[in-house]
Design a protein around this nucleic acid. Structure first.
Lengths: 221, 221
DNA sequence: TAAAATTTTTAGACTAATCTAAAAATAATG
DNA sequence: CATTATTTTTAGATTAGTCTAAAAATTTTA
């Protein structure tokens, strides 16, 4: 059996490993978990003992197949619960993370399977992140940052890079949510901000920061 | 903040206090929590420190108003989640206890409130137990044990005294669930077993044990 | 009401998870 | 390549929650 603390470490390691394709460093985990390197070292020993990670002193860690599977299951549960909270209970997309963080630790395969069915086997969560299936596989969906669009190109919002409450709330306020279609009108050379046109012809100016955190699926017009 | 362990103790104390109207004994808590008296004593000190119980050495405990409120909130959450699991996810009434036991510890007032609304503010859980409202109050519903019915009297099943999987499964197998209407045909003197007639004219013989664990609302015919 | 039985508490130890401070290993730099 | 700087690990403590075994308090019984 894995404790909640262990599960949280596994998830953190998985997410760091997703971005960098080298062994995950102790300090990176400490930063992600908001704790000290010493605590991380202790936990890494425990996880290695349980064969959930391959750990070599001073050399960083990698998830084993078992650890990777556990992490994937956690992410599956987290994202399914997020769908539930938004679709069924009517929470906003910036309100569900902390609740899902708790719900993902509830044990019960049957529960996850039934929840999945109840939600009609969603493949993406309310932030556009893919939901692993019962076998731990998930769908890859090609998407581009708004920052990489050429003027004139058009796309549908499919996800966010940053998940902060502030960013999600801002997007919600200006009417940018998943599925919204927009066209890049112009990129300002001076500060790399972008002017975009929405479906209803309304125009918005978005900072470079925003454009580098918003994913779109480019539409052929 | 209260830990899950603390919450479980509060709930156990609440449930024992519900039945006996004297101070709750250490050993009773130990039995309910399936642990030792020594562990209970340790926990009682912690809970007293937090003013959740009134504790006097060797004299047993009572919940304070704060402790009682916390216990009630937990029961509210537990029973709401049970409704969710049965009504929305299609679990059987004998499968939901352990899952609800985990879900009840998820923190978030907004979550509970929205869940309650989503489920149409149910007043009773799948076993017929009352669900406290957001203020901690619940509905009293007069009900009688099948064992106390007179021959000829008729009633609707409203709840169970015992919550064991075995009992619930047995009831399910013979078609006895909440809302089922039945009439007491005869009580056998020899072993106090009862013969009952269902709505569809089918007759069943139920042991004394069953009749002492099944609640009914008597119907005036 | 004194002895026996029961209940409860204390004492001391253990594990998981965390911390700070110091030591050790690795990486970076002049 | 020797010396900093950084990263990581160890050492030693702390807290919550649990345990066993023994001591203390209370209750029951003769």
């Amino acid at each position: 059996m894995t404790s909640q603390a262990e599960e949280n470490y596994l998830k953190a390691i998985f997410k760091i490993a997703e971005k960098e394709n080298k062994a995950v460093q102790t300090n990176a985990v400490a930063a992600a978990m908001q704790t000290t390197a010493a605590s991380v070292t202790d936990m890494l020993k425990r996880l290695a003992e349980k064969n959930l990670i391959a750990y070599e002193k001073y050399r960083g860690v990698q998830l084993t197949d078992a650890g990777c599977r556990l992490a994937t299951d956690l992410i599956r549960k987290h994202r399914l619960w997020e769908v539930f909270l938004v679709e069924k209970l009517g929470f906003a997309w910036d309100e569900v993370h902390d609740l899902a963080e708790q719900l993902e630790h509830v044990q019960g395969d049957e529960l996850v399977q039934r929840l999945d069915t109840y939600l009609n086997n969603p493949r993406f969560d309310p932030h556009g992140d893919p939901i692993p299936d019962a076998e731990g596989r998930w769908e890859f969906r090609p998407q581009t940052l708004l920052a990489n669009l050429e003027p004139g190109e058009q796309g549908i919002i499919t996800g966010v890079q940053e998940h902060s409450t502030a960013f999600l709330q801002y997007l919600g306020q200006v009417g940018l949510t998943l599925g919204v279609s927009l066209q890049l009108v112009e990129r300002i050379d001076y500060d790399q901000s972008v002017r975009v046109r929405l479906h209803d012809a309304r125009e918005l100016t978005l900072s470079e920061k925003v454009s580098k955190n918003l994913f779109l699926k480019i539409e052929n017009t």
